[in-house]
Design a protein around this nucleic acid. Structure first.
Lengths: 199, 199
DNA sequence: GGGGTTTAGTAACGATCATTACGAAAATGA
DNA sequence: TCATTTTCGTAATGATCGTTACTAAACCCC
């Protein structure tokens, strides 16, 4: 029983996601969020909790709906294809929407006031989780002979993440897709070859 | 004539630099800055102007005193040495001080409120300036036969900057120096060889 | 069609933000 | 020693921050 909710929760989350993507966690004010969502302040609070809780919901939604290329990439047959697909996915994501370039999950890791520290930690953990998945995948690749015995899965994962993050920064700085694709190609030029190269 | 300044302007700038490095432009409040500098608010204002002006002074000081490895790297004889030195310099810089990891010039580019937009633009321009210097250096290297004719200086510069930025993000996420050095080594593995390899 | 329950919206909360009047203190020049 | 000039430090400015009482409206169940 009780009154029905008049606004669409999904649409409000999407609106909040756009604002956070563009301005980061601390750069987005509650006034920005309510205006984008077309919802009054107490309605947002009652629906999602405070700003931090709202951001965490948005972050989960972001990984689920926008970083879906990563789990897809992890299932490709070779480590090189995994890396290539991850790079291409990141380029798409960080340049597809002109109004919010870059990567939402990176826009808040770097700096902020002391009150934003828990949020920074959450973003760091999410980043580490993605890297761990890549590392495990590359360990499997080495076991399968897809990567040479001398290859170091942890280094390859860290390197790939570094390029991904660097491209996210560059996308935020206004780089074109073509430039980012040249960067990705250069990054792949180093990729160690396995025993058999699939034709 | 008039009363002498009681605090050391250089030390105050250094203190502000540390705070901005740790918290970014918007994350650092004037209360943080005055506390770190040990100077009352109006004294900082009269000495440096408002927060944005203070940040710009700090940014110039940062490039001058901490990113001095870049001009040094540009003068090395081969493009590969330039890249290797830039990577190593960035690793040093972003991991040397545990209390403020990462790169001050990156911590504010990514996101922020609308009022911080001019500062973001300034950081983007500074970043672009560094990349342009690298590109010109690699063009010279190609002309000198240090890089093959097929090498693309703009791509190499963009790639190198991507790795540098990615490592800055990772340093802020707590990566160890050893891990970053492995990343740099992997990045250098892609480097195109010139006509003559210096022994 | 009331009673109980949930939402919507106005309006305000205290805290902190960057910024600055203003008067006391200190130093120079005459 | 007095007048002038600059700095210092207290205290306050209006604005905005995230958050929340509180009241009126809308809904379900009995």
């Amino acid at each position: 029983m009780g009154r029905h909710r008049e606004f669409d929760v999904e649409k409000a989350l999407d609106a909040a996601l756009c604002v956070f993507w563009r301005k980061g966690y601390e750069g987005a004010s509650y006034a920005d969020l309510t205006e984008a969502a077309g919802v009054e302040r107490p309605a947002l609070y009652s629906a999602f909790g405070n700003k931090e809780a709202l951001f965490r919901k948005v972050l989960a939604r972001y990984y689920e709906r926008y970083v879906d290329y990563l789990p897809a990439a992890l299932q490709l047959p070779t480590a090189r294809e995994v890396a290539a697909r991850a790079l291409q996915g990141a380029i798409d994501l960080t340049t597809r929407y002109p109004e919010h370039t870059g990567c939402l999950a990176i826009q808040g890791v770097l700096a902020g006031s002391d009150e934003a520290e828990p949020v920074r930690q959450a973003l760091i953990e999410a980043r580490a989780e993605g890297e761990a998945q890549l590392r495990k995948r590359f360990e499997r690749a080495r076991a399968e002979g897809d990567l040479p015995e001398t290859a170091r899965p942890d280094t390859l994962a860290a390197f790939l993440m570094a390029v991904l993050h660097g491209m996210a920064v560059q996308a935020k700085a206004g780089f074109s897709r073509d430039t980012l694709e040249a960067v990705a190609e250069q990054a792949l030029a180093t990729w160690p070859a396995g025993k058999s190269t699939p034709s």
